[in-house]
Design a protein around this nucleic acid. Structure first.
Lengths: 232, 232
DNA sequence: GCCTTTTTTGGACAGTTGTATAAATTCTCC
DNA sequence: GGAGAATTTATACAACTGTCCAAAAAAGGC
């Protein structure tokens, strides 16, 4: 199998993975499943190095050295560096969105939603600091590098939808509606979260508490029905 | 003059620039003033390339080639790449903070403050898109690279103070107070602004309008006295 | 067991990076 | 205008980059 075929195969294994699990495993599908597993392993290794060094300072050789693989194997499973990093971005999405999905579904009151979400954001900022830092790095990179743009935008949209779902749940318990556009709501929470990350890296001791309180305070201000003289 | 002296001289000319302008120009101060002017020229050239390519893809040679200087001259005026980029970050601050300072001072009503600021932010996002993009790039880089941290934090604080000043003016016209911490208020505006930049780069046609409206809607929600059942 | 295919390896390549430095140029001041 | 200092240039260097590729190794099927 030549190098040209690798990229094709990668595309196939993406599209055919559902079929493979539903069917009695044919030789081909088992093969491509194994291929996909290996891809995920390599991507996880890459993610570890990206977490440490960020996009600008991460090279394939560094990834390889840190993970124990040879640097050549990455070009067998990924067409180039861009495809590898793109794959990592998608991993981020799955890890992140799935993490918050349950909050909206298991809520019993407005107060519980905003408390739980504020706590969850703070916990994630604390536990997954390097991953989130990398996300903002790659998202920014997408403004300079057209190659990342599509995937970054897709992940960003997922996060936007996730946040909107949570705030919607909160608004429903108050039997009112959200006063701001979906994208704006996301921008506000994202601003709070990103600043928390920055503060963590400056050594601030109350960065998490500030995030948690900020999120908590933000919730009611997103709803309609809190009349101010100059609100439109 | 050897290389070792360059860094020392650069430090001197920073500290001594005030003295130079106040005094009858001595030979030394005029010399260092000229030195400082050249530094600024080179930094401006570097900024132009950074604007285009971002931190990860900008090399000294590229800067040199684009600006017509030889790449060696940058090491005569700057100790290394870090010092050059750090200098550029400071330039950003001066350009940015000075741009919004007048809004707070020339305001005559609450409504005018928030209208003017919303318009000013949108205008800046439109006119200085590459510069702001670079700012977020470098700010993120500071989470990976300790070298940038101090300068980035300083600029970030200036922006925070600037925003607080404007919102304070708005609150004063309403004879009330701001309900959120200073850093949180900054985070919210920053989130709106950064997302506008992202949307501009995805080709969104209403990114500026969304920013302007978002900022406009945010203002009243930052104040106390808009009673909601679960506001603390 | 052996033959084919898949997978992995590590070296080679051309290009780029930041930095150092010596030579050449320009400027300054007497 | 010429001695000395300041500035600029171009080259050199070692390290690193992404990519390619031929050969070695491992796995799979019969």
């Amino acid at each position: 199998m030549t190098h040209r075929n690798v990229a094709i195969r990668a595309a196939e294994s993406n599209a055919g993975s559902d079929v493979a699990s539903a069917d009695a495993l044919s030789s081909e599908s088992r093969q491509s499943e194994k291929f996909e597993v290996r891809r995920a392993e390599l991507a996880a290794a890459a993610l570890a190095t990206l977490n440490d060094f960020g996009y600008a300072r991460t090279s394939l050789r560094e990834i390889a050295q840190k993970s124990g693989f040879s640097h050549g194997v990455f070009h067998y499973y990924f067409r180039d560096k861009v495809e590898l990093i793109t794959y990592c971005v998608r991993e981020y999405k799955l890890a992140c969105v799935g993490h918050y999905a349950e909050i909206a579904s298991s809520a019993t009151s407005a107060e519980q939603v905003r408390l739980a979400f504020a706590a969850a954001l703070a916990a994630s900022a604390r536990d997954d600091t390097p991953m989130h830092r990398l996300w903002y790095d790659l998202r920014n990179q997408s403004m300079f590098d057209e190659d990342f743009h599509a995937d970054v935008t897709e992940v960003d949209s997922s996060l936007e939808v996730m946040i909107w779902s949570i705030v919607s749940t909160y608004a429903a318990f108050h039997t009112t509606e959200i006063a701001l556009p979906r994208r704006t709501v996301y921008a506000l929470f994202d601003g709070l979260f990103q600043q928390c990350l920055l503060d963590i890296h400056t050594g601030s001791t109350d960065a998490l508490a500030t995030l948690q309180q900020g999120v908590w305070q933000l919730f009611p201000r997103l709803l309609v029905g809190f009349g101010s003289p100059d609100m439109a």
